[in-house]
Simulated scan of single mutants.
Amino acid sequence: MDAVILAAGKGSRLRPLTEDKPKGMVEVDGKPILTHCFEQLIELGADELLVVVGYKKQAIINHYEDSFDGVPITYTHQREQKGLAHAMLTVEEHIDDDFMLMLGDNIFEANLRDVVNRQQEERADAAFLVEEVPWDEASRYGVCDTNKYGEITNVVEKPDDPPSNLVMTGFYTFTPAIFHACHLVQPSDRGEYEISDAVDLLLDSGRTIDAIRMNGWRNDIGYPEDRDEAERRLRDEPIAADADSESGEGDASAAQSGE
């Protein structure tokens, strides 16, 4: 299974850490955020790393070149940062089967393997790792509703009045059907092509998207203090990145992150 990593953002909220580098190259516990992402995706079985770059892209390309730990890297360029659905279309020509998607500004110590395992079941069109957050934080993310079967029924991107406190965390699996949905997305009120709108189009077409409740933790590295918190957790609270089903696979919730 290939892995797509979205790493084109400017990371303006992370300044001064991103004044001379892209967000993915900010170090957390001694290595760039992207290195954490790559290591986990390879552990999950990634055959190829497809990295969407943009802001200060050459710093990423020069650092990793054409492979990481023996796994080939292909770079695609998002020339303007117009949202995650827009970024996704830059990798469309390279994907012809199910794939993993990770936002390249997240640090995970969680049950990512449960999401991959669910995608490999025949009935799954997509699976998302999701998290229940405090209500006052939900508006920072893509907020989801789920049904009694643990399936996502609706996603709203960064709503002023969240319909739930279940949010997408930044790790997903998809079939190539997501690309058709991304082509149909219209700009949101924020002027971006939102991945949440593409997900809703998948749902409208009758696709099944399963929500897997997160066991462990993740940090969305949006601000310098988030980097500091992730470092503290990595040093003090190690949890296997591929924790399996003792977490109870398939409980529903949902979320997204990223800038």
Rank of each mutant, 00 (worst) to 15 (best):
residue 4 V to P: 04
residue 7 A to K: 01
residue 8 A to M: 12
residue 10 K to A: 15
residue 13 R to G: 05
residue 13 R to C: 11
residue 19 E to K: 11
residue 21 K to G: 03
residue 21 K to P: 02
residue 21 K to T: 15
residue 22 P to N: 09
residue 23 K to G: 11
residue 24 G to K: 00
residue 25 M to R: 04
residue 29 D to K: 10
residue 32 P to Q: 07
residue 37 C to N: 15
residue 39 E to T: 05
residue 39 E to L: 00
residue 40 Q to E: 12
residue 42 I to S: 06
residue 43 E to P: 00
residue 44 L to R: 01
residue 44 L to P: 00
residue 46 A to K: 04
residue 53 V to D: 06
residue 55 Y to D: 13
residue 55 Y to W: 11
residue 57 K to E: 15
residue 60 I to D: 03
residue 66 D to S: 14
residue 68 F to D: 02
residue 70 G to R: 08
residue 76 T to E: 14
residue 87 A to P: 05
residue 90 T to C: 05
residue 92 E to G: 05
residue 96 D to L: 07
residue 98 D to M: 08
residue 100 M to I: 09
residue 103 L to N: 11
residue 106 N to R: 07
residue 109 E to G: 03
residue 118 R to P: 00
residue 119 Q to E: 01
residue 126 A to R: 03
residue 133 V to R: 00
residue 136 D to A: 09
residue 137 E to G: 01
residue 138 A to Q: 05
residue 141 Y to V: 01
residue 141 Y to G: 06
residue 141 Y to H: 15
residue 152 I to V: 15
residue 153 T to K: 08
residue 156 V to G: 01
residue 169 T to W: 01
residue 169 T to R: 01
residue 170 G to P: 03
residue 173 T to K: 00
residue 175 T to C: 04
residue 175 T to K: 14
residue 177 A to L: 12
residue 178 I to F: 06
residue 178 I to E: 04
residue 180 H to V: 09
residue 189 D to L: 11
residue 191 G to C: 09
residue 192 E to F: 13
residue 196 S to G: 11
residue 201 L to I: 15
residue 205 S to R: 14
residue 210 D to I: 05
residue 212 I to E: 07
residue 214 M to A: 13
residue 215 N to S: 13
residue 217 W to S: 10
residue 218 R to E: 09
residue 218 R to L: 13
residue 227 R to D: 09
residue 232 R to Q: 15
residue 234 L to S: 06
residue 237 E to K: 07
residue 244 D to M: 06
residue 246 E to P: 02
residue 248 G to R: 04
residue 248 G to Q: 06
residue 252 A to N: 09
residue 259 E to A: 11
